[in-house]
């Protein structure tokens, strides 16, 4: 624990995100951007496709970020970032970091092809998916990142989501890119460290950020950090890194994982679940946790 406390002091004071942005109360995605930019610094250009962040930034002529933003098409976060990188290189700017910043819909679904293309080419970009587990900007429709059991407006309670969340990390690891990390807004030191680390690596880097959404999860805004922490402590969203698609490192070893029910019960989107259904979700979390431990050699 003493090590953790020492890390707190390493979060830069510099704020590249201003108040006055348009995020909802308790928005995990807005906190994610604030922390990511603390790790990346001002010499960053961000490509933002259609997602909550296309709005959070603020309408023309306003912007809540102190870095350049390219608002790009929904499925083009990765391909736009690849282009920006190539363009910067050709005009002599090889120092600026190019960040693609997309939601789960833009990453798991509509942008997956472009992301795979950029990763296969190992283009020199940092791709971040802030994952709030549904199409929140359009009003809570299911994405392939929506977890099994969840209610959304297109998976109503009588027909809640039956399919598992897509294994985006497995997909990205299969590309063998130099750096992959998961991060959570409940662990700011860890998150800032990962963005700093990613900045120093060349090639395609993928960071999957867990970003609770009170409006879409039907949770209390003041529970955002609590939920993000519980997601890690239950083993639902473990914090780990993968180098070159092969070397797995667990960043936070949770000795006694909390039951998933503790995490689920704080969210209205899971309110309809019965005990046996929660037990099934627990089994799934356990299996995934075991697999990650195995991959990390633990």
């Amino acid at each position: 624990m003493s090590k953790e406390r020492k890390m707190t002091l390493t979060i830069p004071r510099e704020e590249l995100m201003s108040p006055g942005h348009l995020a909802c109360q308790g928005c995990g995605a807005s906190l994610a951007m604030r922390l990511a930019l603390k790790g990346l610094g001002q010499r960053t250009i961000v490509c933002i496709p259609a997602c909550c962040w296309a709005v959070i930034d603020g309408p023309f002529p306003h912007s809540s970020l102190d870095i350049p933003i390219y608002h790009c098409a929904f499925e083009t976060a990765a391909s736009s970032a690849s282009g920006v990188r190539a363009g910067l290189d050709m005009v002599g700017d090889t120092e600026t970091t190019v960040l693609a910043w997309a939601g789960d819909g833009g990453t798991f679904d509509i942008g997956l092809q472009a992301l795979s293309g950029a990763a296969e080419r190992n283009d020199d970009i940092i791709y971040t998916c802030y994952d709030n587990e549904a199409y929140m900007n359009t009003g809570i429709q299911r994405s392939s990142a929506t977890p099994v059991g969840a209610w959304t407006t297109t998976t109503p309670v009588k027909h809640y989501k039956k399919e598992r969340k897509k294994d985006i990390i497995g997909i990205m690891a299969a590309h063998g890119i130099p750096y992959i990390a998961t991060a959570s807004v409940a662990y700011p030191e860890d998150m800032v460290k990962k963005f700093k680390r990613a900045r120093e690596i060349k090639g395609t880097r993928f960071i999957h950020v867990f970003a609770p959404c009170p409006a879409g999860w039907k949770s209390r805004p003041e529970d955002t950090i609590k939920l993000a922490r519980l997601a890690v402590q239950t083993g639902y969203f473990p914090l780990y890194e993968i180098e070159d698609g092969e070397k797995w490192t667990l960043n936070l070893k949770v000795k006694e994982r909390k039951p998933i029910a503790e995490y689920l019960k704080l969210q209205g989107r899971f309110r309809h679940l019965k005990e046996d259904e929660i037990a099934m979700i627990q089994q799934e979390v356990d299996a995934r946790w075991a697999k990650i431990l195995k991959n990390c050699g633990l």
């Binding site: 391909s79 282009g83 920006v84 190539a86």
Partner: peptide, 24 residues
Amino acid sequence: AKFIKVESEHSAMAACLGASLAGA
């Protein structure tokens, strides 16, 4: 020149636009 060998025409134009906006 940098030649980005993209995985679709959609990405081809998207990458061109990113590069163009970066000043190339």
